[in-house]
Amino acid sequence: MTRVLILSDSHGLTEELVEIKERHTVDYMIHCGDSELEMDAPEMERFYMVGGNTDMDNRFPEELTLTFNGLTFFIAHGHRHNVKGNIMTIAYRAEEENARVICFGHTHLAGAEKLGSQLLINPGSIRLPRNRSEKTYAIMEWESSEEIEVTFYTVSGEVVQDLTYRVSL
């Protein structure tokens, strides 16, 4: 079982990042931008990270393409892909990278959805959620691309049942 922790839009929070990292045993961790921390801040240790529109450290890459246990991930904050308007631009960009999983933030709207052969995951925000009260992050788990589960958690570690998403790619 491969487990990836995905979060975004922490906007300066530090204690919460440490608590979330300590709470879960995962293989990989992704931060989709707007941490507002330096790239080498101790709280960002072990995260694959991209820069968002409020990140001032210019060492953050704008996007990453990584493969974990046979699945290719495209990671971007989303502000340069107009994700507040629609998700097609980021989906097309991920397709150019042959990515099946797209992780992004920027909208602060938690959710996961399948679009064609791609899985899009926005973990929401652990600081400033939109359209719901819970401050959220996500964990994606899979053994094969036929059985993927994305579970959303509140910043305090409670499962957000209505956001749980199961899919096969």
Rank of each mutant, 00 (worst) to 15 (best):
T2L: 13
V4A: 07
V4W: 00
L5Y: 09
I6V: 15
L7K: 10
L7D: 10
D9A: 10
G12H: 08
L13K: 05
E15M: 12
E15R: 12
V18E: 15
V18F: 15
V18M: 15
E22L: 12
E22H: 12
E22I: 04
H24R: 05
H24N: 11
H24L: 11
Y28Q: 12
Y28V: 11
Y28A: 15
Y28G: 05
I30V: 15
C32V: 05
C32W: 01
C32R: 02
C32T: 00
C32P: 01
G33M: 02
S35H: 00
E38K: 14
E38I: 05
D40I: 07
E45T: 10
F47E: 00
Y48F: 13
M49S: 15
V50R: 02
G51E: 01
T54K: 07
N58P: 06
T65C: 08
G70M: 07
L71D: 01
T72Q: 05
T72L: 05
F74G: 00
I75M: 01
I75H: 00
I75F: 01
A76H: 03
G78L: 03
H79C: 13
H81Q: 14
V83I: 11
K84T: 11
K84F: 07
G85Q: 10
I87L: 15
I87T: 08
T89G: 03
A91R: 09
A91N: 02
Y92C: 13
A94R: 04
A94D: 01
E95Q: 13
E96S: 11
E96Q: 12
A99Y: 00
R100T: 07
V101F: 01
I102E: 02
G105A: 07
G105E: 01
T107I: 04
H108N: 13
L109M: 14
G111I: 03
E113M: 11
E113N: 07
E113A: 04
L115F: 11
G116T: 09
G116N: 14
I121P: 00
I121E: 02
S125W: 05
I126F: 08
R130D: 06
N131P: 06
N131S: 15
S133I: 11
E134T: 06
E134C: 12
T136D: 05
T136K: 05
T136L: 04
Y137G: 04
I139D: 09
M140N: 04
W142N: 06
E143P: 02
S144Y: 08
S144V: 07
E146Q: 14
T151F: 06
V155I: 14
E158N: 08
E158I: 04
Q161N: 08
Q161F: 08
D162A: 04
T164N: 06
R166L: 12
V167C: 14
V167D: 09
S168Y: 11
